[in-house]
């Protein structure tokens, strides 16, 4: 049944997100098309406008994603659609978990789109526009060719996990705020309260995460194609500057805090909310 909830959550949010990504794909096609079809060295108008539009849309992607997932969350749970959602034969925590997972995946896709648009920018602008920066970027990219493929894959997978956990933490914080804003005290102006309450809640949770992280050094670094576990703060600081690493401790803190916020959200959602 959980897979069905996931499927319908993807359909519900995907209708809007799909349109946004179609626009991104369209702009990318126009930009790259103008680049490869141009005659002469001068930059084509299509290219310039395309790059500008692509970077703008990609940077706005996080805001657009946040708006779409929050709107869907609010409408499908606390709006009139809640009458349908909460009478489905599915445990309420699964409904919440599905929304967190689907939203997190949209955020990860938004990040991938941002990287993709940056790659298109590099391809199109090349050295004549990027100047020295182009060499730096190409130098960074060429470094990957010397790295073992297994280390590269491990590093990418690890980074995806990091982004996933951090976006999931962000998502669950937004959902907690929205849920709190739909309790009796704030329900009349729930949208406004969601915005107002989000800032202090996000600050408190992030500060709490930072507070714990400072006292917990437990990281993995990829050093010379090998995985190195680091628990010493001095070593951590020195490796942080030069190597590709993952702060497992930080990840763990975000995961535990996120799980706590999830449980709190579910409690309020299932015990304290009367749908309008």
């Amino acid at each position: 049944m959980f897979s069905k909830v996931l499927k319908h959550d993807f359909i519900s949010t995907g209708r809007i997100m799909g349109v946004i990504y179609l626009i991104v794909a369209g702009i990318t096609a126009v930009t790259l098309g103008s680049h490869y079809l141009k005659k002469g060295e001068e930059m084509a108008v299509g290219e310039a406008l395309g790059v500008a539009a692509l970077l703008l849309v990609s940077m706005c992607m996080f805001i657009l994603t946040a708006v779409v997932v929050l709107t869907d969350f609010h409408k499908s749970l606390y709006g009139e659609r809640g009458y349908l959602t909460f009478t489905l034969p599915v445990k309420s925590w699964k409904i919440l978990l599905s929304k967190v997972l689907v939203s997190t995946i949209w955020f990860v896709i938004a990040l991938a789109a941002l990287f993709g648009s940056m790659w298109v920018t590099v391809v199109v602008l090349k050295e004549e526009v990027l100047g020295e920066n182009y060499d730096t970027i190409m130098g960074l990219i060429s470094q990957f060719s010397t790295v073992k493929i297994s280390s590269f894959v491990a590093s990418v997978v690890a980074k995806i996990i990091v982004f996933f956990v951090e976006f999931a933490f962000f998502t669950v914080t937004i959902f907690f705020t929205s849920t709190l804003a739909n309790t009796r005290l704030f329900q009349k102006r729930s949208v406004l309260w969601t915005i107002v309450l989000f800032i202090p809640i996000a600050v408190v949770t992030v500060k709490l995460a930072e507070f714990i992280n400072e006292r917990l050094v437990f990281s993995i670094f990829f050093v010379d194609d090998k995985i190195k576990l680091v628990t010493d703060n001095f070593e951590y600081q020195s490796l942080l500057l030069n190597n590709n690493g993952i702060d497992i401790g930080e990840l763990f803190v975000y995961f535990i805090l996120g799980a706590g916020i999830f449980v709190a959200t579910h409690y309020i959602m299932s015990k304290k909310i009367n749908i309008k």
Partner: peptide, 20 residues
Amino acid sequence: GVESKKAIAYLPEKNYLPAW
């Protein structure tokens, strides 16, 4: 709970279907 929701078919006063 889940089992009772399988047994009950509920028609609310509101229009609960998504607009799309």
